[in-house]
Amino acid sequence: MAFLEVKNIQKSFGKTEVLKNIGFSLEKGEVLAIIGSSGSGKTTLLRCINFLETPQKGVISVGGDVLFDGDDPSKKKDNEIRKNRLHFGMVFQQFNLFPQYTVFENLILAPKLLAKEKIKQNGDYMGASTYKEAVELINREAEQLLKKVGLTEKRDEYPCNLSGGQQQRVAIARALALNPDVLCFDEPTSALDPELTGEVLNVIRGLKSSDSTMIVVTHEISFARDVADKVIFMADGVIEEEGTPQQVIENPQSPRTQAFLSRFNQYSD
């Protein structure tokens, strides 16, 4: 069984069926790129995996644990969903940093709240047995994450004083601060100027070498080709084609994939 298993996901908004029986699997440390035109369901799929949307049907499991089962109402309880969300990190197109907190505070807010809860419950947060120890651990880790995304000197700035690219790097560090099993990116560079996309893509590329399992919804085809282990092309709520980047991007079989990619190739190279 693969590390991440997503099976038979069905999601409709009213009468519109957005995801029609989607399934894929991913091994630990692999990077999956999801490409496809707007409205094909890529973002909805990612939101279902993060439980921001509740699919009508389907099963999601990580490391053998079933986190969601459309037929099992006990998996749809608020508290259960909140716990299961922690398996996934999410980086949004619009960054969604908390504006009233500094870069550093953005990173440590959620881990501190979680540590307080965990220590109250079972006296342990990632090896720390007191809240004070946990906070020290969280702070140390946050400093390291800032270094990883190259923003140590922006530690005490507010998000409004950062460029879009810097904000997105903070958002990536914030998602990593909770050590998710799978990190998801929803068009992480679509809201950025072309000259800022590079710095964000480089950070994501850097994470690949540190063994993070990632799902990236993107329009950056060359990035998908270079970084992904696996590529999915979605169209109209189904997986039209999937495989290695060589298979899907270099040598697509489906006419729809071919048409989609040829539109991209017109402008690049």
Binding site: L52, R85, F88, N96, L97, A110, A175
Partner: peptide, 27 residues
């Protein structure tokens, strides 16, 4: 308050009350 603020809180495992008091209220 943009929906994204709530969603960012949710994906970081925060409770609804924590999102209201720690993220949304001051804004």
């Amino acid at each position: 308050i943009p929906k994204g603020q709530y969603e960012a809180g949710y994906v970081l495992g925060m409770k609804k009350s924590q999102i209201f008091f720690k993220v949304v209220l001051l804004q």
